[in-house]
Design a protein around this nucleic acid. Structure first.
Lengths: 212, 212
DNA sequence: GTCTATAAACCGATAGAC
DNA sequence: GTCTATCGGTTTATAGAC
């Protein structure tokens, strides 16, 4: 149980990542210095290199960790139900989960170009996996007649952009509660893709005529 | 008409701004050096200070110039017609105009925090003016019964986020033409805010009953 | 595991020659 | 208007003491 004095690897490590995440989001990767991060943690700059081989890898690890959490969180959601319900589950999950990780979301969008090509490719794959989850909902809804979408890929990107926007203005103690924001966005997303009632009736009518 | 040899102020000035815009968008303000910009233009680093007092002012001038162009462009559009038509005009303008200025759009979103508080406030005012133009369309449509929006401010931000997203993935020689992208986005925006037919009928019916 | 000290390079901005 | 040279300060990363 005895721990060597001066050994804080399992404490300092997470503190380094947390400080780096916050500083990168606040000031940008390029303009944050290793000395700033070290100062935030309460160690000297040289000590940081016990926890990361270099500055760029520190950024990459933060972004990969974030994307993995997003994918794990999505996998833990309950996606039973029809496409309309699944879309609501997705939009509510996305808003809630991303609002809790605004620093990481911001960095994920802005600092990708500070990565090497290989590191970028890894994150790009993870992002695509996430987008595919939404697109498959749209495709299913299109097939079942719940949705009326011209282009599922484009619509996927449009919806995610819309949902991401919430991270740029939402304030936890602001005018609207999280529940209300989730509801409004979820409603907008639904309306943007759902088949209109009159159009659905028209199609059902045409199908009936075809049968008769 | 004779021009002093070595005098290229009216040529080099724009070249400096163009190079800075491209480099800032590509690599981020903080990681672009004055020497890189100078090299791109074909002069030495010291010569740049004939065209800007310092690096930060160079960024600010680029962003203010961009926002002014956006506001001028918007003012030149024809906003006659009902709210549904005006919303389409706005969305198509936004997509077209922003896709032609992707570097500036990207920087406008990411590099605001590298500005002084005063400079930031100037751009924030201009941005708000632009958002207000969209919100007034939503308010008018809400009043006229064309739209069914829970919160015009939030919806404004959501729509602009959605439209901005196009700049992150659109490729001029991609699968979809600009016209088609404009049409799909405009359609999605319209559906997201428009009053459903059945709901409008219900309201008109209720109004009729109230009269009787 | 953290410190101090330092290497090697680079930065923004300025001064003065032409 | 542009150049060269340079000042004063910063950076990432490493070496070695404790």
């Amino acid at each position: 149980m005895a721990r060597k004095i001066g050994s804080h690897s399992d404490i300092t490590g997470p503190k380094v990542r947390a400080a780096a995440l916050r500083l990168f989001a606040r000031h940008g990767f390029a303009s944050v210095t290793m000395r700033q991060i070290a100062s935030e943690v309460g160690v000297q700059a040289g000590a940081l290199y016990l926890y990361t081989p270099d500055k760029q890898t520190l950024l990459f690890d933060l972004l990969r960790e974030h994307m993995q959490e997003v994918l794990d969180g999505l996998a833990a959601e309950d996606f039973s139900g029809n496409p309309v319900e699944r879309l609501e589950t997705f939009t509510r999950f996305h808003i809630r989960f991303h609002l809790e990780r605004r620093d990481a979301v911001f960095i994920s969008y802005m600092e990708l170009r500070n990565l090497t090509d290989e590191n970028f490719a890894v994150l790009e794959d993870m992002r695509r996996t996430y987008e595919d989850a939404l697109e498959s909902i749209l495709k299913d809804g299109q097939a079942s007649g719940h949705f009326d979408v011209e282009d599922t890929k484009l619509t996927t990107l449009a919806l995610i952009s819309m949902l991401n926007g919430v991270t740029t203005w939402y304030k936890p103690d602001g005018r609207l509660s999280l529940e209300r924001v989730e509801a409004i966005y979820s409603d907008m997303a639904g309306k943007a893709v759902r088949m209109a009632r009159w159009k659905r009736k028209q199609m059902l009518g045409a199908a009936g005529q075809a049968k008769a």
